[in-house]
């Protein structure tokens, strides 16, 4: 672990001015549950770590006229416990409460969860210089890959590990991003970019930018949502496969649906063809499995992760059935 300077800013303007420092490796830290691991594992060597928790007023959940606004520094545990979120956004609660362990949910933040780095074991091994770290290839492609991507691999097969990202994207969330130039908004679905755009990172955040807030549209009456996460053991694990679903239902009929999956691609993976196939259908297991098979036919599994195809079909089916519960 290298020694670094620690910045304790008092405002978001100060944060972005820190980020603007030239010729310096600057990182922002929220809960630190991922960043400190990256430093200790020798994956990054910051010159300066900026503690976002020092900035007042970045942790909040507010219902506004047209949206619910969630501050980036909101603890994952607080998101799971918020009465308004619990009432209107089941998918967020179900995703938040299965993240890691209680200790990590208390420390980890919404913004940090959305900006965390992949857990690929080759990426996390400082000795391995893979494509994500500037090397020439993905070691998982022909190596050990039971947890790797079945969609959109190629340059890099690391999956995006966040539970909140698929849930927020299913809810059509928008990210508010701050920089020295001011603020901009971007749909969270477009915040993530696959390896082909830039294999070194998972999102389109610029060097001087920081996620300030997530906004989700107010829930409509006939909308239901749910999160299904598959892990190998009882608790404390990243998703092998997950499915976040939001749907507008008329009785048992699906009027509209968004399906976003975790653990299957380098970014949260939306299944638009499956969504299209389910529109107008009943929210039943057999319809869901029939539709899910469309997407699964497009999967490109590696030697050890083919079982994820079956798991994904089951997670989608269970999510669709859970909508009615």
């Amino acid at each position: 672990m290298n020694s670094f300077q620690y910045g304790k800013p008092t405002s978001l303007e100060q944060v972005t001015s820190f980020l603007a420092r030239e010729n310096a490796n600057v990182f922002v830290m929220a809960g630190g549950t991922d960043l400190l691991g990256e430093i200790k594992e020798g994956l990054i060597e910051p010159d300066l770590v900026i503690d976002l928790k020092a900035v007042p007023g970045l942790a909040y959940i507010k219902k506004e006229k047209d949206a619910v606004a969630i501050g980036a520094l909101t603890a994952v545990a607080d998101l799971a416990e918020d009465p308004m979120i619990r009432q209107d956004y089941r998918v967020l609660v179900e995703a938040a409460k299965v993240i890691a362990s209680p200790q990590l949910r208390n420390m980890g933040t919404v913004g940090g969860n959305l900006c965390q780095r992949p857990r690929c074991w080759y990426y996390r091994d400082a000795r391995v210089v893979c494509s994500k770290k500037g090397g020439s290839k993905c070691y998982a492609e022909k190596g050990r890959n039971k947890y790797h991507a079945i969609f959109a691999g190629g340059i890099c097969y690391a999956v995006y590990p966040s539970d909140l990202a698929p849930a927020f994207i299913a809810l059509e969330a928008i990210a508010v991003i701050a920089s020295p130039q001011g603020e901009r908004t971007i749909p969270l679905a477009e915040f993530y970019a696959p390896p082909i755009v830039n294999v070194r990172k998972e999102n389109v955040l610029g060097k001087q930018e920081v996620v300030k807030e997530i906004r989700i549209p107010l829930a409509k009456k006939n909308e239901k949502s749910t999160y299904q996460k598959f892990i190998e053991r009882g608790s404390w694990d990243f998703a092998v496969v997950s499915a976040a679903v939001k749907a507008a239902l008329s009785g048992a009929t699906i009027e509209d649906i968004r399906i976003v999956c975790g653990g299957v691609a380098p970014i949260p993976w939306r299944l638009k063809k499956v969504e299209a196939a389910l529109k107008g259908k009943k929210a039943t297991e057999s319809e869901a499995r029939k539709a899910a098979k469309i997407a699964l036919a497009e999967a490109a599994p590696l030697a050890e992760n083919g079982y994820k195809i079956e798991l994904l079909e089951t997670m989608i089916a269970r999510a669709v059935v859970a909508l009615g519960k």
Binding site: D125, Y139, K142, G143, R144, K146, E232
Partner: peptide, 18 residues
């Protein structure tokens, strides 16, 4: 889990070694 190419264990930690 051993990696045949690098000759190392890919999961020598309590996150990946479950």
């Amino acid at each position: 889990l051993m990696d045949p190419e690098t000759g190392t264990m890919v999961n020598p930690n309590l996150h990946d070694y479950k």
